[in-house]
Amino acid sequence: MATVGLDKLYYASITESLATGDEIYGTPVLLAKAISAELSVELAEATLYADDGASEVVKEFKNGTLSLGVDNIGRSVAAVLTGAVVDSNGVLVSSSEDGGTPVAIGFRAKKSKGQYKYVWLYRVKFAVPSSSLATKGDSITFSTPTIEGTVMRRKKLDGQGKHPWKAEVDEGDLDVSQAMISGWYSNVYEPNFEED
């Protein structure tokens, strides 16, 4: 179904278990007001030919690129996402050695019928935000930052022995509970393959 809106853009910090290396997600925090989110996915593909034709085709997630347009990236969020630091005078200082740690990214997109699609991307590593600035002329033009990140699969295996990279749910699907929707931003969604 077509979407007509985007909001509730959150991030959750990731620490890795010393014993297993698995991701442990922090409490989700509002990142900024969302303007746009563009997700493109790159696949690893292979085709096996046999008997003069394609016999097997494999397409697996390799990585993705997430480009977020936001109203503002505050100092504390920029420090988490990019590895920049805030000095003792409250100034955000970016250096060539910066490299933020991956975070989980959650958001929702409004569908044309009024309900929402909810998404968590499990592991995104961001680069320094880009900016486009212009002088004010006869008309006012807003200039807002864009931040781009690489979407990766997470290290932690799910209940099926796979490495998920995204979780999404549509509000209003008959088998989706209201508790699932209302608790979407309480924590990063963990896949559950247990039978009820």
Rank of each mutant, 00 (worst) to 15 (best):
G183L: 04
V41N: 11
W165F: 14
A179E: 11
P164C: 09
D52N: 15
G21N: 09
L157Q: 09
G149C: 02
E97D: 14
T3G: 13
Y122R: 02
L18P: 06
L133R: 11
N187F: 02
M180Q: 10
K113D: 15
I181F: 09
E60K: 04
V124S: 01
K162W: 00
Q160L: 12
A32V: 12
V77P: 00
D173G: 05
T144I: 05
A46N: 10
G172W: 02
A109Q: 03
V4K: 13
D173P: 03
I73C: 01
Y189C: 00
D52F: 05
L157K: 09
S67P: 01
S186R: 08
T20D: 13
P145T: 12
T47N: 08
A78G: 15
R154L: 08
G99P: 00
D158W: 05
S67W: 00
T135E: 11
F126I: 14
V128S: 03
S186I: 00
A167R: 01
I105L: 13
K136P: 01
A19I: 13
M1F: 15
L81Y: 06
M152T: 00
S177Y: 02
S132L: 04
Y185L: 10
K33H: 15
Y10V: 01
R108S: 01
A84I: 11
D52K: 13
A46C: 08
S131E: 11
A84R: 06
S40A: 11
V29E: 07
S13K: 06
Q178S: 13
L92S: 04
E42L: 14
K155Q: 13
S95R: 08
D158F: 04
E194L: 14
S95W: 06
K136S: 07
V77G: 01
L81D: 04
I35P: 01
W165V: 09
I147H: 00
I24N: 10
A104K: 03
E195C: 13
T144P: 02
G90P: 09
S96R: 14
A44Y: 04
E171P: 05
A78F: 06
A84G: 15
G183P: 01
P191F: 01
